[in-house]
């Protein structure tokens, strides 16, 4: 994840408390989703950014995952994101995200 974005994530987690923050991703495929999710939960796996060695454990979802999709206004989702379900491998993304959440998320309900 971009180093500046890591810095902002870290700041917001400190400012609002990690339990109050949710990260939503829009990555194009499973592996990239998993890496971004890992960065905001376990820490930066590339050892480059401000989240290196910082395990925030934030709640993180990809925007196409059923759990969060169910909370959006369906018409807005359809207009803004819907089409990408035909393009992205949603199942692969969801399974990568689930495995990261199972392992590293600290604040799931």
């Amino acid at each position: 994840m971009d180093l500046e974005n890591q810095r902002r994530v870290k700041e917001f987690a400190e400012q609002y408390g990690p339990e109050n923050v949710v990260v939503l991703l829009g990555a194009a495929e499973g592996e990239a989703s998993g890496l971004a999710a890992e960065t905001v939960t376990a820490g930066d796996p590339t050892y480059a950014g401000p989240l290196t060695g910082v395990s925030l454990g934030l709640t993180v979802y990809h925007v196409c995952e059923e759990e969060v999709k169910a909370e959006f206004d369906p018409a807005v989702y359809d207009e803004q994101v819907g089409m990408m379900e035909m393009v992205l491998d949603v199942d692969d993304i969801a399974s990568e995200m689930q495995s990261i959440r199972d392992e590293y998320c600290k604040y799931l309900g």
Binding site: L35, M83, M86, V87
Partner: peptide
């Protein structure tokens, strides 16, 4: 690098929009 295949991705997006 987890960046997928943007070339193919674009054609899929065009097709998906046409389907929509």
């Amino acid at each position: 690098a987890g960046g997928g295949d943007p070339a193919e991705g674009f054609f899929k997006v065009v097709a998906a929009a046409a389907i929509k």
